[in-house]
Amino acid sequence: MRDIAIAYRLYPGVSKIPVVHATDKFQLSQLALESFRRALGGLNFKIWALLDGCPPEYPDLFRRVFTQDELELVDVASAGNLKTFSMQIDLLTQQTEAELVYFAEDDYFYFPDALVEMVNFVQENSDVDFVTPYDHPDSYFTSSRYEHHEVRPFGKRHWRTASSTCLTFLTRRSTLIATEHMMRSYSRGNMDCSLWLALTQKEGLFNPRVHAADTIRLKIWVKTWLWGWRNLLFSRGYKLWSPMPTLSTHLESTGLSPLVDWPEEFAAIEE
């Protein structure tokens, strides 16, 4: 058995405004992928690369970064964000390479050995259901800062429970199978935030200071109940954890993780 199985999806278009290589998705993808390989350290892994309408230089990039034994390329004919997430679920529930599985998107920058730390955290803590590498700015600057969190020291950092994240995360294959119906709701029109709230929140959904703070948060609260009422009423709650300080950041210019001098980090990489 391997330590981890990974489904990494990549789309060649630029969305939003990246903090680096804002007009060159290939350069952005190369920066992200090379940092991801460093984040895997000495782990024994298998990675499936879902290439969503990508020209030939993208599979060549993956072949340069990973060995033939580590990599399997999956050519997707412009399926789009919703379908490729569902394909990740298909791959990671059906594979038998590893019990730990990782969903990866193409616009994250990682610190070295980030995935090693995440794998260790899951293996040594039985109550860890999901882990994100990303310490979200939302937890500091929006109504999410009023949520109640559990904080735990482990390894080189502290880990905090979070109510939601994006679609880059680590979990067990068994947990993914147990939550598959809720996960697939994203591909049917649900939001990532409301998906996670349906998995992680019980009593927390009744905190008006958090969920009635503005119209956007209220909309998320409504969608959480519309899509996740069955899970909220009849399933157990799951714990999602995030690292402090962060192990990774989303490369969108407005979504950088706090407490890190990112211009300095990117400048060092470019040099």
Results as ranks from 00 to 15, higher is better:
residue 111 F to D: 00
residue 246 T to H: 02
residue 138 D to C: 08
residue 146 Y to C: 06
residue 227 W to Q: 03
residue 264 E to Y: 15
residue 61 L to E: 05
residue 30 Q to L: 14
residue 117 E to R: 01
residue 212 A to K: 07
residue 72 E to K: 09
residue 110 Y to W: 06
residue 220 I to T: 04
residue 70 E to Y: 10
residue 86 S to M: 12
residue 224 T to F: 04
residue 63 R to S: 09
residue 146 Y to P: 07
residue 45 F to S: 03
residue 14 V to E: 13
residue 45 F to L: 13
residue 60 D to S: 11
residue 59 P to Y: 04
residue 8 Y to H: 09
residue 183 M to N: 05
residue 132 T to K: 06
residue 218 L to P: 02
residue 139 S to L: 14
residue 265 E to I: 15
residue 259 L to D: 15
residue 236 R to F: 14
residue 18 P to K: 05
residue 108 Y to P: 06
residue 42 G to R: 14
residue 70 E to D: 10
residue 79 A to F: 11
residue 143 S to F: 09
residue 113 D to I: 01
residue 196 W to L: 01
residue 164 S to I: 00
residue 231 N to G: 14
residue 14 V to K: 09
residue 39 A to C: 00
residue 109 F to D: 03
residue 167 L to Y: 03
residue 82 L to V: 12
residue 37 R to N: 10
residue 100 L to C: 12
residue 209 R to V: 10
residue 44 N to E: 14
residue 180 E to T: 07
residue 69 D to F: 10
residue 104 A to E: 14
residue 95 Q to F: 04
residue 138 D to G: 09
residue 77 A to V: 12
residue 188 R to V: 11
residue 241 W to N: 02
residue 221 W to H: 04
residue 89 I to K: 08
residue 251 L to A: 05
residue 105 E to L: 08
residue 117 E to M: 08
residue 222 V to M: 05
residue 24 D to L: 08
residue 15 S to A: 15
residue 151 V to D: 11
residue 90 D to N: 14
residue 11 Y to M: 14
residue 189 G to L: 08
residue 257 S to W: 01
residue 181 H to N: 15
residue 132 T to E: 06
residue 63 R to F: 02
residue 36 F to V: 07
residue 205 L to Y: 01
residue 268 A to P: 12
residue 225 W to F: 11
residue 18 P to Q: 04
residue 148 H to P: 11
residue 20 V to G: 06
residue 112 P to V: 01
residue 181 H to D: 14
residue 65 V to N: 05
residue 67 T to F: 08
residue 31 L to Y: 10
residue 185 S to F: 12
residue 73 L to T: 03
residue 77 A to S: 14
residue 192 D to E: 10
residue 31 L to K: 06
residue 52 D to I: 02
residue 45 F to P: 07
residue 55 P to N: 02
residue 247 L to F: 03
residue 135 D to K: 06
residue 34 E to Q: 10
residue 221 W to C: 00
